[in-house]
Computed example of a mutant assay.
Amino acid sequence: MAGILDKIHAYAQSSLLPWGETGTIISNEAISMLAQQNTIPGHVVERQALAKSIYPLRYLRNMQSITIKGQQRLLESTVAQVGLGGLGGNLLEQFLRMGIGTIHAADGDHFEESNLNRQELSTLNTLNQSKAYAAIKRAEKVNPSVEFSATEEFLTVNSLPDFLAGADIVIDALGGLETRLHLQQSAAKAEVPLITGALAGWTGYVSVVIPGEIGPADIMGVNNEAEGILGCPAPSVMLIASLMAAETIKILTDTHPTLQGKMLVVDLASSTFETVIL
C-alpha cells in the first residue's frame, strides 16, 4: 500500500474544515481514479487516506458526528440487507452516503405505482423494474466507492445462511411480518446482530437483536392486516428507516447506547416515542 499512500498524498490538498481547523482533504474524483488505476475498491483508498488523517471530501460532514476511526470502521464493514422497498430503499441511500464499504442486498420484487408514495428507489422510470436492478443503478450514482451487490431473489430459510455469510450486521427491511422470524433466527445462527423495524400507518418500531436474545419477531406474530389497513405514509417509512440506520451506525462503530434488548415504539400521530424492554 506504500505506492497508494504516495499517490493519495499527491492528490491531497490543504483546506479549512467545517469545524474551523485546517486539515487535508482528497476529492471523490481523485479517489475514483486511484481505485481504477490500482484495481481496488474506492473504500480501500478512502480507508488509507483516513489512516493518514486525510479526509475524503464526501465524508467531511460525517466528521465530528463520528470519528475518523468510526468512519474507517464503516468503510471496512459488510452489511447484509434483506429488502429494497420502503425501508430498504431509504436505508440503502443512507448507508451509501455514510460510507459503509460493502453492502449485499436481496429483493425479488418489482416496482409498481403504489410504491411511488414512499419507496426511495421507486420512480416513474423504474416502474416494473426489479428493485435489485434499480438499487444497483442508484448505488453507482451515489457512491461508487461502495462495493454493492443486489440479488433479485426472495430469500428463504435455505438461502439465508449463504447470503448472511461474512456480514458484520444484518438489516431486516422486509415488508410485512411473515418471514421476519426466519430472518431473525438465521441472523442468530450466523452470530450476527440484527437491526429490525416495521410500521403501519403513523406508528412503527425499531430494535437491535443480539444473537441469543429475544426480538420483536418473537412477539409480533405474522398478521399483516395493520399495514394493509393503515397504509405506509412516507414520513413513517423515512423515520423508521433513519432510526434503523442510526442503530446500524452505532453498532458498527461501537457507539453506545443502542436499542439492544429494547424496542423503540414511535407514534407520529401523537408525537410520542416509548421504549419497551423486551
Rank of each mutant, 00 (worst) to 15 (best):
A105C: 07
P257T: 02
L155R: 13
H182R: 07
A190H: 02
V209N: 03
C232M: 11
N158C: 08
S236Q: 04
A167T: 01
A200S: 12
A165R: 14
Q37L: 06
A150C: 02
A132N: 02
E93W: 06
T196S: 15
M1P: 07
S130V: 02
I169S: 02
M220L: 14
A30W: 07
I169K: 01
V208L: 14
E21H: 13
V209I: 06
I54C: 04
G204T: 10
E247S: 07
G176H: 03
E147K: 15
A173T: 02
E140H: 15
A12P: 00
E152H: 14
L199M: 15
T22R: 12
I249M: 10
A134G: 04
Q81V: 07
S149G: 09
N128P: 00
L177W: 01
M263T: 10
E29Q: 12
I171A: 04
V157M: 13
K52G: 13
T102N: 11
V222P: 00
I171Y: 08
M263I: 14
M98C: 13
D172W: 00
N90H: 12
I8H: 07
Q48S: 08
G166V: 10
L75M: 09
A80E: 12
L17I: 00
L84C: 12
E191I: 11
Q260Y: 13
C232K: 10
D168Q: 07
T203P: 04
L264F: 08
N158S: 13
Q37Y: 01
Y59L: 14
L177K: 02
L181C: 02
L75P: 09
T22L: 10
V208N: 07
I54N: 06
A217V: 04
A187Y: 12
G261H: 09
R138E: 06
L177Q: 04
F95A: 14
